[in-house]
């Protein structure tokens, strides 16, 4: 199994419902975020382009956070997602320094925290909180190893990108559209 997320930038309007849903789903403390929205304008009036992207931990296949964690707290879950074992985490921030996406923060309780791809929900057959709430249905999670899954079929159609591919981390959050 290889859990991935596919985000359709054409559908997304950048409303940040995903951000607020994640915060309330995962009890993310004030001032911290597990996901966020980036908007970038390209071009000059009147030939413009606006890119809107809901971002989060990329659950990289080559995850520097896992490699660089001295205590083994950052680990790959059986579904391929990157998770943090709070009991093993000392809050040393080696993972944060190595993450090219700035996806992690230190929880006030002393451990490092980030997007879990709502592993607790996926395990129950529910979508992630951000996918569930998204008014534009821009977010899709699924098993890339399953050739019948929507994420597999969508990625096969091409026009796919990832954030900072040059970092060599092989993200599992994909952007389409």
């Amino acid at each position: 199994m290889r859990r991935v997320m596919v985000i359709d930038m054409k559908r997304c309007v950048g409303c940040e419902a995903c951000v607020v849903a994640c915060k309330t789903e995962n009890r993310v403390p004030d001032g911290a975020y597990r996901d966020w929205v980036v908007q970038e304008t390209k071009g000059e009036l009147p030939t413009l382009e606006l890119l809107i992207r809901s971002q989060r931990c990329n659950h990289c296949t080559n995850a520097p956070c896992v490699t660089n964690c001295p205590t083994g707290a950052s680990f790959f879950h059986v579904d391929g997602t990157v998770q943090i074992d709070r009991d093993r985490c000392t809050g040393c921030r080696a993972c944060m320094a190595s993450c090219p996406y700035d996806a992690r923060y230190v929880h006030p309780d002393g451990f490092v925290d980030k997007c879990t791809l709502c592993v607790h929900r996926l395990a129950k057959g529910k979508p992630t909180a951000c996918e569930e709430v998204c008014p534009t249905s821009a977010i899709l999670t699924g098993d890339l190893d399953d050739p019948t899954s929507l994420v597999h079929l969508r990625l096969k159609r091409g026009d796919v990108s990832v954030v900072d591919p040059e970092a060599g981390t092989k993200p599992n959050v994909f952007y389409v559209g």
């Binding site: 790959f76 091409g158 796919v160 990108s161 599992n172």
Partner: peptide
């Protein structure tokens, strides 16, 4: 964060290192 193109081929070919 700049976006670069990827393809399913590279995505699927990547072996999980866990």
């Amino acid at each position: 964060l700049s976006l670069g193109a990827g393809t399913l081929a590279t995505a699927v070919a990547a072996k999980l290192a866990f």
